[in-house]
Design a binder for these strands. Structure first.
Lengths: 391, 391
DNA sequence: AGCGTTTGTGCAAACGCTTGTGATAGTAAA
DNA sequence: TTTACTATCACAAGCGTTTGCACAAACGCT
């Protein structure tokens, strides 16, 4: 442990580590009973044991008595090298347990074979599932995936983009935070020619490829189904007004009413920040204001689940008195009682698609043109809205 | 798009891309109505637009007319450089929008400021939450986190370790897959001096630092609580027999019986692979075999939730006829009806602890000794076991 | 024999940054 | 005035790979 002196008594033998606070090492002086923190300086820390000199192509070259370039080429089956030499090189490489240094490779190749993914939150199933889709494709072609969470903060989103860029990711797959409504951090890097793909929550103005869930249609299907079940006064609990998915899912909702020959009541459209508290507050307000409401369509499943729990506490019977539907097919929806009707957006598939588009793009190189794909999903009808067989 | 020719008709203008299969680009020839795949060769792909020559310290040096070393030192506030020079350098750097090339830095420093985390599965809340804890600490001190999922496969776990190592992560935080019971991939790298920390599912023989949830005590608390509620024949649904958490949680379970002055019935101990199917099958078998069973303690929350759903379907009343408890405090447990009694293992805190231990270790450098920390949690009593007030 | 091709290999310059070692001043002590 | 620092900076050798180019030997043709 680095010798740190107490800020009070200046002794060092009474000091113990005591956790981290905001990236600062916290210490405790047993003598003075005094806590303090100091900025960690990883640059000045004692040089830990050198990474053992792992074998390089130089070592291999020396052993066999050829040049490094020959080794380099031999290892990647370059046609210039004779079969004989290749075999020798490969064998020696294996014996020496040679591992190419990815860093050096990236430096010379000017590409890292790494893609950066930015999602709002890894703890929600929806994003985790997309992520898994992305990783499956990426790892199949030998690409690594770096992940970071914006935690719904625009600031950290920007910071994360920045980190990825300085780490030379070959591309950026991003789903914006709810807060984000300026996109300079994207534009800048787009201009620098870094492949960027937006998914789910996208900014339409940006000239990037995009992968979308079928928000409009999904929402339409949910609403149409509810109307078909005899629900008349369906309130929609949406996200922030400017958010892409809010706009699109609202669109589908309205469309369903139009198709049914009626029109939605603007008073039943609620914008929230999709936190549990905000949603439940809105639900209560709505129910107080308007006793005719017979259904809630929340554009997030976890929100819908919370609504179900809440309504049940109030003694309201679902779906007989009030129906509830969600969007996203979160596993919880299948477990709650009554189970939740939801739109299944095929998140895993979505992740795969995003990754595929990225590889398409880098294969196309300069003559790539941005395109938008839509991942189809399917309505999952469960008990929370099911009153009678569909006509 | 790279010109690919149809394997049948050898035309190229009728070819369109059609997804990825196992890392191979799939093509479709519209003329022959024929699908085929070819191996992507990212090395030979057309060199996309060069990453625009982003500004380097060389550029800065040229502009001001000092040497690169001066610029390098100035930017990191080295004491050798005069304040005046520093200011100039920093200003020019800002004007040129200089971004240090992390790759080059890593190469010379021989460290990447990146830590690799391997978890079985990112889609389960438990791990995602640990991950978030890790990331919070890491990003606070300017470290990046690379994540990969083993998907409970030993093989991919090994592959992931390998990838991380060739990418020179500064350390490895790992939670083993259920399958894993050989640890050569860890031993090897441990010997090479790479800091490795195991968490949750650990291999005790390995001389690494470890972070554990309080499996024994947690399980003990759950069981003791159930006994206190009057449950007598409590079956435990565990994981694979060799799995660390299985052993420990079983230990706590047995301990609780001992403390109560009775002993557990070995017939009520079930090992499963923790998949939904296996668990439910065991439950059914148990119930058929032994009608006296009045409670299930599943060592995974999702398992417990599935059991609840299953029992409800069978018309069994919970907790009156049969009680159910879980482990992990998965959010679903709070939502299901009846809500699930569970042990909350403080996953976020666990993640933080793991990260802290890593930084402790690299700060200690060579004179670090492996240590084991245990993260305390707390019992959360909910309706699935609650029959009467605790004595 | 003369000449143009292959074939197989080595040289050396990048890639962008860090850092040990000097070098040159100016300044203070002797 | 000499000596001894100190402050400030430049040089250059890496870090481990990739890759354009040169070059020599071998081969096939007239």
């Amino acid at each position: 442990m680095p010798r740190v002196k107490c800020k009070k008594c200046h002794k060092d033998e009474t000091i113990i580590r005591s956790g981290f606070i905001r990236g600062r090492q916290r210490f405790f002086c047993k003598e003075c009973d005094y806590y303090f923190t100091i900025q960690l300086d990883f640059q000045k820390r004692k040089p830990s044991r050198l990474k053992d000199h792992s074998t390089t192509i130089i070592d291999i070259a020396k052993v066999i008595g050829v040049s490094v370039s020959t080794v380099s080429r031999a290892l990647k089956d370059h046609s210039d090298i004779s079969l004989e030499t290749k075999n020798v090189v490969k064998q020696v490489a294996a014996e020496l347990n040679y591992q190419p240094n990815t860093l050096a490779q990236s430096l010379t190749r000017r590409e890292t074979r790494t893609i950066g993914v930015i999602i709002p939150d890894i703890e929600t199933y929806f994003f985790a599932s997309i992520l898994t889709g992305i990783q499956s494709i990426a790892s199949a072609v030998g690409y690594k995936v770096m992940i970071s969470q914006s935690r719904e903060s625009h600031e950290t989103e920007v910071a994360n983009v920045h980190t990825f860029i300085t780490n030379w990711v070959d591309g950026l797959l991003i789903c914006h935070s709810k807060e984000t409504n300026t996109f300079d951090h994207i534009k800048l890097n787009l201009k620098r020619g870094i492949p960027i793909i937006q998914f789910d929550r996208v900014c339409e103005e940006l000239n990037t490829s995009k992968v979308l869930l079928d928000d409009v249609d999904g929402s339409f299907q949910v609403t149409e189904h509810m109307i078909g079940q005899g629900f008349k006064r369906i309130a929609i609990i949406a996200g922030p007004e400017r958010l892409y998915v809010t706009r699109k899912r609202l669109e589908g909702y309205l469309k369903a009413f139009r198709k049914a020959g009626t029109s939605a009541d603007p008073a039943l459209i609620c914008y929230t920040d999709l936190t549990k508290e905000a949603i439940l507050k809105q639900v209560d307000e709505l129910l107080e204001r308007d006793r005719t409401i017979d259904a809630f369509f929340c554009i997030s499943d976890i929100g819908a689940v919370n609504i179900i729990v809440h309504l049940k506490k109030k003694g309201i019977r679902i779906p007989h008195e009030i129906g509830v539907a969600g969007f996203g097919n979160d596993p919880t929806g299948d477990i709650i009682e009554p189970s939740l009707t939801s739109f299944n957006p095929q998140t895993y598939k979505c992740g795969e698609t995003v990754a595929q588009m990225f590889f398409d793009q880098i294969l196309d190189g300069d003559d790539h043109v941005a395109q938008t794909k839509m991942v189809k999903g399917n309505l999952i009808v469960r008990s929370s809205t099911f009153r009678r067989p569909e006509p």
